[in-house]
Amino acid sequence: MNASIYFQLALFLAVLMLCAWPLGSYIANIMSGEGYRFVRLFKPAERWIYRLCGVDPEIEMGWKQYAFAVILFNLLGVLMVYALQRLQADLPFNPQAMAAVTPDSSFNTAISFVTNTNWQGYTGEATMSYLTQMLGLAVQNFFSAATGLAVVIAMIRGFARHSATTIGNFWVDFTRSVLYVLLPLALLIAVFFMGQGVIQNFDAYKTVTLIEPLTYTQPKLDAAGAPVVDAAGVAVQETLTTTTQTLPMGPVASQEAIKMVGTNGGGFFNANSAHPYENPTPLANFVQILAIFLIPAALCLTFGKMVGDARQGWAVLSAMTLIFVVMAFLANAAEMQANPALAGMGLDQTPNLSQSHLLQAGGNMEGKETRFGIVATSIFATVTTAASCGAVNGMHDSFTALGGMVPLWLIQLGEVVFGGVGSGLYGMLIFAILAVFIAGLMIGRTPEYLGKKIEAFDMKMVSLAILVGPFLVLVGTAIAVMVTDGKAGILNPGAHGFSEVLYAFSSAVNNNGSAFAGLSANTPFYNIMLAIAMWFGRFLIIVPVLAIAGSLARKKRLATTSGSLPTHGPLFVVLLIGCVIIVGALTYIPALALGPVIEHLSLHAGN
């Protein structure tokens, strides 16, 4: 452990809290319809959108109507992104003449971006036209985040209102989320990224001459593009020399900003935030992780303000922060360890600080950008998987077995540690209801949360929301490791191959989108299976969340008495963390034992 992790984490959390505090208050006011001078400037645009779409902003919705609007809107989004990919060859802004994307990949990508997952089975710079990137993917980056924001605001209204039959108007919540929260933040961050060197253009890709020729080895392919194998079945390698390199171009900064602030994570380039055109400097890297946590952290404070007790928001935010900090330390500690397999070969892996520049980082540098190093990569990995972002600045697949287990487990906790825009908080509030229910059982009182009695229907919906994720992850993984098409995509045999499949389904169901890269997932089997996982992982949680919102809004608010469980203090924070960890642990430990745990033991046993 070195001092850098303490410094970087402390600085990150301090700046995060300073930014989240005013933003949380701003979002609460915006979503309640209160005006700022800045907002009043855009009110005509908001009214024009309502008129154009035939929406009456004064009419509120019950939970079922709200849920129906969410599903309908997102269905149209999937159809739109699917059509764009299939027709991109005949549409403008395609200087590289990209062909139409295959049907199964289009299907997967459309659902991936609409559900805020941004799982990418394709290589961005070799597959998508600029029009598809901008009108399809970037637009859904805004819309999917706005959907999450709208849903969590509806849920907060469930707590804040009493004896009400409505939870808001989806179209109004959605429009305000895009217009007043996501667009201004994305604009600010995009301009900052451009200042740091992120590119923003519509140029054709550039071919440049290398300073010196590069010789490299790659598998030899036949005319059909399949690997050539020798008599023993081993892939034949060929050695090539190149003097030129093609540099992909594109409108990257505008997509990069919303990719982070909307917790989307889908990179313009395949290398994502490890690519110098997406994440050029350490400062850009810092702002990227800040942007990921910004809205999820702010929403906790929005929650406190809207329910009339700021301490409630701080309690939830404290629980999230404590889990995150512990996980960041664990990931960093694992990555700082030297690889025992390399030590066995006599390689010196001790940190080398004797030179003017660092020659040996002293830990696991495989798959990491030397520009960022172990600490910034470990923090990025923890942030991107604690939130449901999924952007990466290093290869999670190359982490040590235990270092890789941290992002995997954070995803499996249900993306409630900060989580996605909106989805993180509504997921955590589901656990908060579970926590007060368990506390109620322990002390023999009817459970209450924020003065609302938690009854049978609410607990049925909580159970559904919590169980859907593990069911889809574990059943999906089990199917994939049993059928031929699933096993065909596993490039690393054994425990690590299992981890890759488990990570893929965990990431898809919980709408994260990052990957253990060793899985060949752009096949019809994985494209379809993961699309099912993403859609139902998203909407089978949103539906019960809205049902709970509707149910809570109808209830009367009970007065707080000396018998009420305080939900703003350390005791509740510990109880909430316990619920999240224990439910996550009980659900996934057997699967984790088959993957990263076996891999770790095997590595240290010298296998």
Partner: peptide, 30 residues
């Protein structure tokens, strides 16, 4: 092939709407 995937998308949405109905029958209408 496109028709199959488009049908799949609509089927997903239809199934989700059925879940809404199922949830309301569990007591969400009360």
């Amino acid at each position: 092939m496109d028709l199959i995937y488009l049908t799949g998308i609509i089927l997903f949405a239809a199934l989700t709407l059925l879940i809404i109905k199922g949830c309301s029958r569990l007591g969400g209408d009360l």
